[in-house]
Design a binder for these strands. Structure first.
Lengths: 110, 110
DNA sequence: TCGCATATATAAGAATCCTATAGATAAGAG
DNA sequence: CTCTTATCTATAGGATTCTTATATATGCGA
């Protein structure tokens, strides 16, 4: 799995990305992220929940309590318009970082 | 330029990478990193110096004071053996992160 | 001599991750 | 029926790594 120091800042992109496919609650987001990245990227719930609150405060996602068929209480989040708009430049910024690191690390041969 | 939240953890890789080409002092490292990434990745000296101390404590780089021809006092760092060994898995970890984010973000069409 | 590039250093604060801990309900095993 | 496991949310305390602001000092060109 990818270490904590390196993956800083990825949670935001990860959450916005998995929410693109529809509304999800925190627990399920964690599973999707791990599944889609084949276990490379994994977040503890204790990291995800505060991040979800922050992102809701910023207006990128909106959560509402839902009671599923089993009677389970969950907070389901969906992308807001602002969240959708945020996704594109965020992807671009990450792409730019990848390019920058590739240039930086490629120069000297191993 | 790439924002602060996203580039967390890149300083380590950046420093090790620029030092692969030979010994450098902090001020020059900052310039090389900015130059090689065409301005995408930029570090303030206030971020670099503490990072250099930490990396020296971890044994990845070693610095010694040198007095250049102008009489300028600089601390020049070079990679240690441990630092060279660290570089390869660190690159791999970043590559894995790139792959993970690509999978995560690619799934849903824009 | 004034300002700019060079060069290092520290302090205070913000953001995001971690582990540990807590509580609650549903479903399946024995 | 009870015990364990999976589901689900939540907070506290700590570590790391960025930020801006500030301090200090030298060499060089205008």
């Amino acid at each position: 799995m990818i270490g904590a120091g390196i993956k800083r800042g990825t949670a935001e992109l990860a959450i916005l990305s998995v929410l693109e496919g529809g509304a999800l609650h925190g627990y399920e987001m964690a599973r999707r992220i791990e599944e889609r990245t084949k276990g490379s990227l994994r977040f503890t719930l204790a990291a995800l929940y505060p991040m979800l609150y922050r992102m809701e405060l910023r207006g990128w996602i909106r959560g509402n309590w839902e009671t599923s068929g089993n009677g389970r209480r969950r907070r389901c989040y969906r992308l807001t318009l602002a969240g959708k708009k945020k996704l594109s430049p965020l992807r671009k910024e990450w792409a730019e970082l990848f390019g920058a690191l590739r240039r930086l690390t490629k120069v000297s041969p191993a």
